Simulated scan of single mutants.
Amino acid sequence: MKQIAIVICNYNYERFIAEAIDSALAQDYPGTRVIVIDDGSTDRSREIIESYGSRIEPVFKENGGQVSAYNLGVEILDTEFAIFLDSDDVLYPGTVSEVMRQFEQHGVAKVQFRLDVVDDAGNLTGAYVPNTEPPADCASLLKKGWLYPSPPASGNAYRVGALKRVFPVPESGINRYGADFYAIYGAALTGSVATISRSLGAYRVHRSTTPSVSFANSEQITKAPKAFRERWATLRDIAHERLNLELPSAFHDFAHEKAYFGSSLYQAPVGARWRWMLNESRAYLHSIVANPFWSLKKKAGTLFLSSLCLLPYSPLSDFVIRYITNPLARRGTVEQ
Rank of each mutant, 00 (worst) to 15 (best):
Q27T: 06
V36I: 14
I37Y: 05
S54N: 15
R33M: 10
T32W: 05
D38A: 03
Y13M: 04
S45I: 03
D28A: 10
E47P: 05
T42G: 00
I56M: 10
V36Y: 07
R15Y: 00
A18C: 10
F16V: 04
E50F: 03
R55N: 11
E57Q: 11
G65A: 05
I21L: 02
R55K: 15
G53C: 14
I8F: 02
R55A: 12
V7F: 15
E62F: 00
S51N: 12
I21E: 03
D43W: 00
I8A: 06
A5H: 15
F16T: 15
G31N: 07
I56A: 13
E14K: 07
G64R: 02
A24Q: 11
R44E: 10
A24K: 10
A26F: 05
E19F: 06
D43S: 03
V36N: 12
I17K: 04
V7I: 15
S54C: 12
V7E: 15
N63E: 05
N12Q: 01
Y13I: 01
R55Y: 04
Y11G: 05
Q27F: 07
E47L: 03
Y11S: 04
F60W: 01
I17Y: 01
G31V: 06
F60A: 04
F16D: 11
T42C: 00
R46G: 01
K61Y: 00
T32C: 07
A5E: 15
G53K: 14
I17H: 00
R15L: 00
Y11C: 04
V7R: 11
A20T: 13
R33Y: 09
G31M: 04
A5D: 15
V34L: 08
Y11Q: 09
T42V: 08
V34S: 13
V59N: 09
A26M: 12
V7L: 14
E50S: 15
D39N: 11
I21F: 02
S54I: 13
A26C: 13
E14H: 03
G53T: 14
R46Y: 00
D28E: 14
N12D: 05
K61L: 03
V34F: 08
E19C: 08
Y52I: 05
A24L: 11
E14W: 00
F16P: 02
E14G: 04
R46W: 00
F60P: 01
I17M: 03
R55C: 07
F16Q: 09
E50T: 08
E57H: 11
P30L: 06
I56Q: 07
S23A: 09
R44P: 01
R15V: 01
I21Q: 12
S45H: 04
N63H: 13
V34Q: 07
E14Y: 02
S45D: 07
S54M: 14
V36A: 12
R44G: 10
I8D: 03
E50H: 07
G64V: 01
E19Q: 14
